[in-house]
C-alpha cells in the first residue's frame, strides 16, 4: 500500500497541470505568468502544462485581489477542480490585497475566499520567482508525505 502511495505522490509532483485565473489583477502578474510559460523558461521540463479547463488542472494560479464581482466565480472554479488541488497566489495583491486592500469593491487576498498553498510576492512577481514558488510548493508536498509516513 505504501509503495502505491509513494508512486502516486511521485506522479503528482512530476506532473502538475496549472490553470491560470485572473481574479482582478492589473494584468502585470498575468503577463509574467505567461512569460514563465514561454519556451524561454520551458516549464514542460517540470511537467507543467497550462490547461484550459479546471477539470484537468491540479494547481490554480491566481493573480490579483479578489473583487466582489469575481468572488463567486473564483469559488465556483475552485469547486470544479478535482481533488487533490492546490492554489498558488501570484503577486502582492493576490497575497494580501496589496494597495487595493480595504477598497469598497475588494475582498482582501485570495486566502480570504479559498485556502491557499503557496504565496509568491512581487509587484509583479518575476517569472523566475513564479517557477521557484511552484517548485517550493511541490517539494513541500513531498516533505508533507514524508512527515505523514513517519
Amino acid at each position: 500500500m505504501s509503495l502505491v502511495k509513494k508512486i502516486v505522490t511521485w506522479a503528482r509532483i512530476k506532473s502538475p497541470w496549472i490553470l491560470h485565473f485572473n481574479t482582478g489583477a492589473c494584468n502585470a502578474c498575468d503577463i509574467e505568468i505567461i512569460a514563465a510559460l514561454t519556451p524561454r523558461y520551458d516549464l514542460e521540463r517540470f511537467g507543467i502544462i497550462l490547461k484550459g479547463t479546471p477539470r484537468h488542472a491540479d494547481i490554480l494560479v491566481c493573480s490579483g485581489p479578489v473583487t466582489s464581482q469575481i468572488k463567486d466565480r473564483l469559488i465556483r472554479i475552485y469547486e470544479q477542480m478535482p481533488e487533490p488541488k492546490f492554489v498558488v497566489a501570484v503577486g502582492t495583491c493576490a497575497c494580501s490585497g496589496g494597495v487595493f486592500d480595504g477598497c469598497y469593491n475588494v475582498e482582501s487576498g485570495i486566502n480570504a475566499v479559498i485556502p491557499v498553498s503557496a504565496y509568491i510576492p512581487g509587484c509583479p512577481a518575476s517569472p523566475k520567482a513564479i517557477i521557484d514558488g511552484v517548485v517550493k510548493l511541490l517539494t513541500s508536498l513531498e516533505e508533507k508525505e514524508e512527515a505523514i509516513k513517519r
Binding site: A11, P39, D42, E44, R45
Partner: peptide, 28 residues
C-alpha cells in the same frame, strides 16, 4: 516538438507520471 521549438522538453517518464496522476485523481 520541444526540441524543434528550441527548448529542453519533458523528461522520459513524463507520460507515465501524467497517466498515474490522472488515474489517482478524483472522478467528477
Amino acid at each position: 516538438y520541444a526540441r524543434l521549438q528550441n527548448r529542453l522538453g519533458p523528461p522520459w517518464f513524463q507520460p507515465v507520471a501524467d497517466l498515474i496522476k490522472l488515474l489517482a485523481k478524483e472522478d467528477i
